[in-house]
Design a protein around this nucleic acid. Structure first.
Length: 601
RNA sequence: GCGCCCGUAGCUCAACUGGAUAGAGCAACUGACUUCUAAUCAGUAGGUUACACGUUCAAGUCGUGUCGGGCGCGCCA
């Protein structure tokens, strides 16, 4: 709630009461109805009157008009701003079935700008129109599990979507007042590793490279799959037996195999650590499949003894027909664990060891059924926490040719993308700067621009729509891109360097009367509400879109409302504060997407 | 065969969860750089929201059906 929405609610509640004294409308009810007109010419806030129609026995159009008359009548001075009463509207007018409110630009400026200037968002002190009170959820502790890469496989651009999404959700939830545990879950055991090691030990003639050894293992995995496909008859059976035996040894922590496993696994972990550092993504806790597989097996065996699970064709599983979820496999017939086996133990640990209220899994949409089955199984086992598990699905990153697959080897590796982007930025966008700036700043700036482009690209689209990846598109830096957003930020910072004034909130707020300036302020009023919604709906795309629109509004104002060339110094000071606030909102918002803008570019 | 997700401008996507004239960006065309960074801005053009019924004051949004695409449906993760 903010002053403006607050006042609208109170005014209309009182006015409605006078139209019909029987029905008492709560301000919260009215608040839920308030929306924004499609066009700034039509006002800043709108109250649709459809829902009053039934009770009042009149058309919404008529109600809007009556409300307008009541509100304007009540205060004849109101059409002109009344400084005494501080009514924050310059106009209240019915447009068909809507009652529209025009904010008084000066009051908007006076309410908004000092609030942003004095209370950094990081402290969460300001409230500019949050849709919902957060105190209720204040202390909730939520675990967000994301990224979960497999060791012995290359990290490709598909993994980037998950990482960006999970990281952003952690940041947004923290901003919204939740206590967040960001968790990673490494796939460091399983068939794919057995296949990789089988090839590494028996067929690989090369020695590992100096760098990116984890990625190299991924290549071996792909080659292993290819080789296995060419084998036939006895050879194929022999290979299968060898792989199965490797897998068993791995799960039994066989000392000899463990040496190789440990070493190669570390190669991948080293790669990941470097990638996360570059991506500016941190985790609060790490889980490993190798750490929960035995516990999972015990849970399944126990469940089988209890009769919750059943033996079927040599394997163990659970019949979930009642929940309409079919049969769910929990342990292979050779006794080895499955993904599902480990997920049971993992879920239990999350609740037992972290006393979380909610457990979120950021995992691809193709596993929706799997998680329904996991949660249903946990419930059957008597874990009430299953109710608080939530699978957040997202659609895949596809190639124009189709699905990306490490198995098939048709992936765009992250390292490859990073390299191309760096070269592209250094040779194109930063070519001139490279001549003047130190190498460190050039590299760091290129890094930040690349990161903005990648993360914005991954986050700006609704999570459940697939992204078709083509390298060319991702090098574009015009229009609706991450580059556009950080460029806007840099231009604001540049203003500060061009003007001799210090930013201050001791300004004449009445001077900010240009429509483009008002547009910007109206936009900033929505910031916290949008962040709240992005978190609750698990959609950073809402925030991304908002920031893009904020930057568009800024670019518009930038062209029409120059600071440097303003007519007076007081106008300079006013605009400087305005743009400074835009930069603050933008920086905060980008931070929630995991993006740090450069100060110049 | 069954289940989930999706279908909006030539292309990539929005549309505040049922509200006002469906909006942006690419691509195309026209303008604006001796003026705070033109990685920008202003403008023109582009639509039967896949299709058909239905629900109501109101449907891109909800329901049913059809078509088209993606992903799942016991020894991968």
């Amino acid at each position: 709630m903010n002053l403006f929405v607050d006042t609208i609610c109170q005014l209309t509640r009182d006015a409605l009461h006078r139209l019909d004294s029987e029905r008492v409308w709560a301000t919260s009810e009215i608040q839920g109805l308030i929306e924004q007109p499609p066009d700034a010419d039509m006002g800043d806030f709108a109250l649709p009157c459809f829902s009053f129609s039934k009770k009042l026995q009149r058309s919404p159009k008529q109600i809007a008009e009556e409300l307008q008359n009541l509100l304007v009548q009540e205060d004849p001075q109101e059409q002109a701003f009344d400084a005494q009463k501080r009514l924050p509207f310059s106009r209240i007018q019915a447009f068909g079935p809507y009652l529209n409110f025009f904010l008084h630009a000066e009051i908007l400026a006076r309410e908004l700008l000092p609030s942003i200037f004095n209370n950094p968002f990081s402290k969460g002190l300001i409230s500019l129109g949050r849709g919902k009170d957060r105190s209720e959820k204040n202390r909730q502790k939520v675990m967000i599990e994301f990224s979960q890469p497999n060791t012995h496989k290359g990290f490709h651009v598909g993994h980037l979507r998950n990482a960006a999404l999970g990281d952003s959700l952690c940041r947004i939830h923290r901003f919204n007042g939740y206590e967040v545990v960001g968790a990673n879950y490494f796939g460091d055991v399983g068939t794919h590793i057995a296949k990789c090691l089988w090839y590494y030990l028996n067929h690989c003639k090369d020695s590992p490279p100096e760098e990116l050894r984890g990625e190299w293992l991924g290549e071996l995995y792909t080659q292993s799959v290819h080789l296995l496909e060419t084998l036939e008859g006895e050879e194929a059976q022999k290979a299968q037996a060898e792989i199965s035996s490797l897998l068993r040894k791995m799960e039994e922590k066989d000392p000899e195999l463990s040496k190789v496993w440990d070493e190669t696994r570390q190669w991948s972990m080293d790669d990941f650590e470097e990638i996360y550092r570059w991506l500016d993504i941190r985790f609060d806790h790490y889980f490993y499949e190798s750490d929960v597989d035995e516990e999972g097996r015990q849970m399944v065996l126990q469940g089988e003894m209890d009769g919750t699970f059943i033996l079927s064709e040599g394997a163990i599983g659970i019949d979930l027909e009642e929940e309409n979820l079919g049969f769910f496999m929990l342990l292979k017939s050779d006794g080895n664990t499955l993904y599902s086996t480990k997920d049971l133990a993992l879920a239990r640990r999350k609740f037992d060891q972290f006393s979380i209220d909610r457990s979120v899994y950021v995992v691809g949409a193709e596993q929706t059924l799997h998680f329904k089955q996991v949660f249903a199984t946990l419930k059957r086992l008597g874990y009430a926490q299953a109710e608080h598990c939530y699978h957040l699905p997202y659609a895949l990153v596809m190639l124009p040719s189709g699905k990306m697959s490490s198995r098939a080897g048709n992936v765009i590796l992250f390292s490859e993308m990073r390299k191309k982007m760096r070269e592209f930025i250094l040779q194109g966008q930063l070519a001139e700067q490279s001549l003047e700036w130190g190498t460190t700043e050039v590299e760091e700036t290129a890094h930040r621009i690349a990161l903005a482009a990648i993360k914005y690209g991954m986050l700006s689209q609704d999570p459940n729509k697939p992204i078709v990846f083509s390298m060319e598109d991702w090098l574009v830096s015009e229009g609706d891109t991450g580059t556009y957003l950080v460029y806007a930020y840099v231009r604001i910072r540049s203003i500060g360097r061009q003007v001799a004034l210090e930013v201050s909130d001791q300004i004449d707020f009445a001077l900010l009367e240009h429509p483009n300036e008002k547009l910007l302020m109206r936009r900033m009023l929505d910031f916290e509400r949008i962040v709240w919604k992005s978190g609750e709906q698990f959609k950073p795309s809402l925030l991304a879109r908002y920031l893009y629109e904020l930057c568009r509004d800024f670019s518009k104002a930038y062209g029409t409302c120059s600071v440097k060339h303003a007519e007076s110094e007081s106008l300079q000071a006013a605009r400087l504060l305005l743009f400074h606030c835009v930069a603050e909102v933008l920086k905060t918002g980008l931070g929630l997407l995991g993006i740090t803008p450069p100060e110049r570019m």
